[in-house]
Amino acid sequence: MADMTVSAPLATAPARPRARAVGCTEEPRWLRWTVTLVVLALLALLVVVPLASVFVEALRDGAAVAVASLSDPDAWSAIRLTLLVAAVAVPLNALFGVAAAWALTKFHWRGKAWLLTLIDLPFSVSPVVAGLCIVLLFGTNSLLGGWLVGNGLPIVFAVPGIVLATMFITFPFVARELVPLMTEQGKAEEEAALTLGASGWRMFWTVTLPNIRWALLYGVLLCNARAMGEFGAVAVVSGKIRGETATMPIMIEMLYNEYMSVAAFSMAALLTLLALVTLTLKSLLEWRYADQLAASGRH
């Protein structure tokens, strides 16, 4: 009995300063829980539930109906077109990103800041305005567009226009991933390679590319995700010709407006799955190679 009366205050005594020590660099417990719950609830309502609803709506009449709607010839042509556009636009943007990052980070020259600003320009231009710009430059009414159509190479309302629009929207992604990383890496390793007698290309393939490969892949994944989903700019330049210039997002809009909800959501579910694959790969990269990716964390 006597032991217990002594030990009881002893047990509580050391707990108090410890609680204080934690408290000084942390929010109170009730606040922590409230903020966490509110934030997670909002995230669920805004992001997770809508994502789930895509699949619920697509499978409303069963999986067979959903799959059948995707095997429609127009749906197939939309899927093929989306993959084709991404297959052309993404490598070109990767080439641009590497070239721009090389010129920007390995040399000192006047006008660098200007180039950086211009590369970011597509971020502040609405996709619809981007589409409009391409229509104005390459449309049949313009000088350049008229000449190109005359020579059998229509841009607007055709696949090249869709590729250009997609490239415009996704233009900064690869460069923005590479520039901070390559700035940090400096050029000592490349200079060492040259001193040891490597040619320019050999240096690039054996020194530079291995150093930037994960950040490059990361940028390509971001670029690809946006490229396959681009809607506003493509809606303006494509002319929305079913079976010819309708990409998957355009097809979703057309089906939705025709009240073909299951078909629209089936196509949406397929695009969502592609997006989820991209996201998984991106998260894996982030977890495994966090130190080799730029610490920028921006999009």
Binding site: L43, F231, E253, S283
Partner: peptide, 24 residues
């Protein structure tokens, strides 16, 4: 997982987000 979910709006095509939010 939640950290990865933050990127969803970025990876999800806007037209998909549009019809999903509207249906909901």
């Amino acid at each position: 997982l939640i950290d990865a979910a933050v990127d969803l709006p970025f990876a999800l095509p806007t037209a998909v987000a549009g019809i999903a939010l509207t249906a909901l």
